[in-house]
Computed example of a mutant assay.
Amino acid sequence: MSGSVPTSVDVEPPPFQPRPMPPPAPTGQIRASELAARSPIAGLRHVGLGVPDLRQACAFYEGVWGLYRVADDRDVVFLGSVGSPEPYIVRLRQAHAKRVDIIAFAGRSRAAVDALAADLATSGFRLVREPGEQDTPGGGYGVRFFDLDGRLIEVSVEVRAKSFRSLEAGESVPQKLSHVVVNSTDIAATMAFYERFLGFRLSDWLTNRMAFLRCSTDHHSLAIAQRTRVSLNHISFEMRGIDEYLRGTGRLIRHGHAPAWGPGRHSAGDNTFSYFADPHGNVVEYTTELEKIVDEDAWTPRVWPGTPDYYDQWGTAGGLEDLYALDSQSEADSGLWTPAPI
């Protein structure tokens, strides 16, 4: 070997090259903080599902998914989360066919519930239940109505909290209900309804096929996907952290439930994801570390591209074939424009 070896190296290491940010999304004329101030709601409470086999659904959500029974009444079971003060976050009801019974949000006050009911009624939307006292676990005061697509929506206040506790390290059960994603045949119209009456704000788009909407500091509590039918897209549950999210994903796999997509990490919302099918084909998700939006007006909504390096930042989730197959098998929701019996 000829020549001398340098005694010092002063070459700079290459800089980190982050992915470029996608373009900002077009926004409306009303400031996000104004929409937030007008909003009658403060967060997501629970989702009710009608299922053809209640025993099978309970075995999945109690025995594998990580919820626990807080009440039952004939053919209805109410399931809570260890880490949530909500009286229940999932309601299961024996039904002839799979359907979404209800999506429930927390209201801000009785006055806000009454004002929402009056606004909907004068705008021609059907109230299924006038504002009044509720007889479900936790009680409270609420109103029920159909949204633009025929989903039954509830907004309630003064609901009694149940006992809860902080999840322990390694405890891989849902901490709370994170968000619900619905399919619509007219994403713009459905989004406008939720902005106009419930005060949701746009957080991001996924191309022009999914809008992520917030009603709290969570990046999204509701998302709307453009599809050829009105139906449920998925229900998402927040885990304690990355370790617990992966432990929960592993538990589902060990019980014979292979992920339809995941584990991976989204760009819009920056949250992790593992999607599974429940026994009736409803898609449910474990997630964690969903982005927080504290300053309404400082946030810039983006139009995220639907390319692999953006819809899965980690590149670990695999292809979307199984998730698409589940979506293609779903029919229009049989519960549209039909009030749930309870």
Rank of each mutant, 00 (worst) to 15 (best):
D218H: 06
A169F: 07
R247G: 06
C215A: 11
G170C: 00
S163P: 10
G150F: 05
T190K: 07
R160F: 07
T228V: 12
A258H: 15
S166E: 15
D204Q: 02
Y245D: 04
H266V: 03
D270R: 12
F237P: 01
R247T: 09
E168C: 09
H266W: 01
H255F: 15
Y275N: 06
L252F: 05
P174I: 01
E158R: 08
L222R: 11
R254A: 15
R160M: 12
L206K: 09
G250D: 12
R209T: 11
S274Q: 02
A211E: 02
S231H: 07
H257M: 13
I253F: 14
S274L: 01
F164I: 03
R201V: 10
F193I: 04
A211L: 02
S172H: 11
S163I: 12
V230A: 06
Q175A: 09
V182W: 00
V155M: 11
P174C: 05
R165N: 07
I242A: 08
G170R: 00
H220M: 06
G248H: 02
E158Q: 09
R160V: 13
F164E: 05
E158V: 04
P263E: 04
Y245C: 07
F273S: 03
E171V: 06
I153L: 14
F237I: 03
L232H: 12
L252V: 03
I153Q: 14
E154Y: 12
S166Q: 15
A189D: 06
G241A: 07
E238C: 04
E168V: 06
V157Y: 07
S178A: 10
R151Q: 12
L213N: 01
D204P: 03
G250Y: 04
F212C: 00
I253A: 14
S172G: 11
L167I: 03
K162L: 10
R151N: 15
R201Y: 02
A161S: 15
R160N: 11
L213P: 00
L198K: 06
E238G: 05
R265H: 03
L222P: 08
S236W: 00
A223F: 06
T228N: 14
R229E: 12
T272F: 15
I187P: 01
